[in-house]
Design a protein around this nucleic acid. Structure first.
Lengths: 238, 238
DNA sequence: GCCATCCTTCGATCGAGGTCGAAACATTTC
DNA sequence: GAAATGTTTCGACCTCGATCGAAGGATGGC
């Protein structure tokens, strides 16, 4: 069309309910075959195929053939970010007053966003790290690790200097679409989440984005972060 | 319908080329009247009005009536962020901050809005007058001149009691579309601007709305208002 | 080779919504 | 009060795209 970047075309692609449902289903970064996406969107396989072809052409998804399946995944982190930001302006109206399923509540409480911790727990941890002066929000949606923070992470077994920063930095502010606040993404977020798993504080559910906190984990979260299970769960009505 | 709410509806609204063009035009935070948005989108006023009504219902824009214009602006920072992220998906280019021409920058800095002073300078002067207790914002988008204010204006050579109030009052709060804050309009605003011209502090460009501050004027603005040229121009780097 | 499964392409239908002309409405100016 | 300007509403047209049935490919199992 014109010289303007066609922001409209991307938005148009997301603007269809069926396509939006597929994209949301892919939000956690997993790849899904076309058939499952069709089911997730509530349309026939033909229709889903048509939609996926358009999303592919628009760069919103990538595809990988595997035998007779074709696995689709989001086109990139920027796509996921755009989707989460769109969700943040969605009217999320009283219509949603309906009771959330157990998994939905678990997702809101703690989940993986790509490979880092998100949800109420992820945001709470991020807040504590900022309150204690270990992380500082800086321009360009980044977090800076303070010297105190580097020491603290080191005590936990995470050598900050050994984490390679990606092109988008070491620690990014990622908007949490349920909490509408930021949590820590980027290489630091990933390594930190891996560490919590390795220590047995949290456990990732086998085939979903849900993250569970172990009994041992709650003791540690209380001890290290001052986060109490009852407080966090009280607000999320789990 | 899917479990996820209306991420699709927001995206659908942005997905129309005309609506996207309007939103992009508003990306810098300015408020614009419906007519200008229609022109920016390349559609007629009727069509633009229809689009704006939908954007308004979706919460993507807000509106403020000002005289016979209706100024639209983005619904919030989250809307701007979502738009920027959507633009980052489009392969063409990063967010395009339009490079403003010299006149556009001058207009933002100081201009006449009808017959009174507007732009960064107009807003700054209005702020100082309020801080010093000479003007007080009151209901119905009016300013009230305090007794201290009347004395101060008198000392400058402006007898408030001799200015006839129009049907809409003596001093009106006029929304500044570049600064998004109020400046002084109405008969007082006109007379005050005339006075600054007569004193040679400012000079109106012959065939545009641009207002220039004279060398003498900057000394006076510093002396009378505590406004420094470098401070005001430093922030207008847009 | 033959069938089952998974996915895409083709063709046709059909409804939603973008567009503009005309007119109503609102506000300012003369 | 009348004219001018900015904006919205109404009505009608008409294109675009979502949808699904049917058929065509591709892959794996037997």
């Amino acid at each position: 069309m014109g010289p303007q970047p066609n922001i409209a075309t991307s938005a148009f692609l997301i603007g269809d309910p069926a396509r939006a449902a597929m994209l949301v289903a892919l939000l956690d970064g997993r790849a899904m075959p076309a058939g499952e996406l069709a089911q997730a969107a509530g349309v026939t396989a033909q229709t889903a195929s048509s939609h996926l072809a358009k999303l592919l052409a628009g760069g919103l998804v990538k595809v990988e053939a595997e035998g007779r399946h074709r696995y689709y995944r989001l086109g990139g982190a920027n796509v996921a970010m755009a989707l989460e930001h769109l969700a943040s302006i969605a009217p999320s109206e009283p219509v949603r007053r309906k009771v959330l399923t157990l998994e939905a509540r678990q997702l809101r409480f703690a989940r993986c966003c790509y490979d880092h911790l998100a949800g109420r727990l992820g945001v709470a941890v991020t807040c504590v790290l900022q309150e204690r002066g270990f992380l500082e929000p800086t321009a360009n949606k980044q977090f800076t690790v303070t010297s105190a923070g580097a020491a603290w992470f080191g005590g936990l077994g995470l050598d900050i200097t050994k984490i390679p920063a990606s092109r988008r930095g070491l620690a990014r502010q990622c908007l949490d679409w349920t909490e509408r606040r930021h949590h820590v993404a980027g290489p630091l977020g990933v390594k930190f989440t891996d560490l919590l798993c390795a220590k047995g504080w949290i456990r990732r559910a086998p085939s979903s984005r849900v993250v569970e906190v172990t009994h041992e984990g709650w003791k540690k979260f209380e001890q290290e972060f001052g986060l109490y299970e009852c407080d966090l769960k009280a607000e999320s009505r789990i």
